[in-house]
């Protein structure tokens, strides 16, 4: 399968990327690792006029420590993210979820920001950044703006990043002491997308869950927080039975679809089961 023709330019600054996108018009497209984009190009589901390669922009690479948060360049590869000491120490949920993305070859090339900007509802990382209250810096012709994760994901394959904009970096608050995390994912075959995934972070003090954040993968057109579970968990004892009871409402507020992988009812069942499992592991139960 051969992509249709397009132009290509590799840029070395965010300003140059924005200028190239603007000059390229509405069919210009950012590429970093291209691990989501190349399959679309080959199947001709996407036919951009020009690809603006942002993988060599220094500012979009690597992880920096801000004290109470870490900032990850959007073009940092999955492999670099999951092996980064700052990420492992302060955002372990992201390291764990990233280790489940696709396969080693794709993790070597694919990028954190690319996976977010692609906006695939079955992608693992959107629910993680939603659960962790991350914020994204987006650069465009009018300068830069910061968008919270809850406003970043708009619809299937649609994010807050405009046609002439670039996702530059993602800032994730550190959770601090007492928090445990886990990413639980269910799929039927090697390389399969998550039928349902659950990103869980819970804070346990004196045997009780005092705070909880749950993000759900592939349960709606965009990642969603299991807000009713978060509320139900807060104040419960960190025991298997109480966690299981609190997770009974995991499907509330979701909009699961029926497809070849699973029907709606089965997905909602998985939401309850996987949320309970994820929380139990995160809470050390």
């Amino acid at each position: 399968m051969i992509p249709s023709t397009f132009d290509y330019v590799r840029v070395n600054s965010v300003d140059a990327a924005v200028a190239a996108l603007r000059a390229g018009g509405e069919d210009a497209k950012v590429i970093t690792g291209g691990q989501s984009l190349l399959p679309l190009l080959r199947m001709r589901l996407a036919a951009p006029s020009i690809l603006v390669d942002c993988s060599d922009i220094d500012e979009m690479q690597g992880v920096t420590d801000n004290g109470d948060s870490v900032t990850i360049g959007a073009a940092t590869t999955h492999w670099a993210v999951m092996h980064n000491d700052l990420v492992k120490a302060h955002v372990p949920l992201l390291a764990k979820a990233t280790a489940t993305v696709a396969d080693p070859q794709i993790r070597h090339r694919g990028t954190f920001g690319g996976a977010l900007a692609h906006g695939d509802s079955a992608g693992d990382l959107p629910s993680v950044v939603l659960a962790l209250d991350a914020s994204m810096v987006i650069a465009g012709p009018d300068g830069r703006r910061t968008v919270s994760a809850k406003d970043f994901f708009v619809d299937y394959f649609t994010t807050a990043v405009g046609a002439d904009e670039v996702l530059v970096s993602i800032t994730i608050p550190k959770l601090g002491a007492g928090w445990g995390t886990h990413y639980e994912k269910f799929n039927r075959t090697a390389q399969g997308w998550a039928i349902v995934g659950v990103a869980a972070a819970v804070k346990v003090e004196g045997g009780k869950i005092v705070d909880a954040r749950i993000g759900l993968t592939n349960c709606a057109p965009v990642p969603v927080r299991a807000s009713s579970v978060e509320a139900a968990l807060t104040g419960t004892s960190a025991s298997a039975a109480e966690i299981d009871a609190a997770c009974a409402s995991a499907a509330a507020g979701t909009h699961a679809t029926t497809d070849l992988g699973a029907d709606k009812e089965y997905r909602e069942h998985l939401m309850r089961v996987l949320t309970s499992r994820a929380v139990a592991v995160a809470a050390g139960v």
Binding site: Y8, Q35, L38, R42, P104, I106
Partner: peptide, 29 residues
């Protein structure tokens, strides 16, 4: 497979495994 799935086209790019069907030659420049 030509769909990024099978890995038969795997090569090392700067020492790391990648699927060469999922990279443009210009990206490897």
């Amino acid at each position: 497979c030509d769909t990024s799935s099978c890995g038969a086209c795997t090569v090392l790019l700067n020492g790391r495994s990648v699927k060469s069907c999922s990279i443009l030659a210009v990206q490897a420049d």
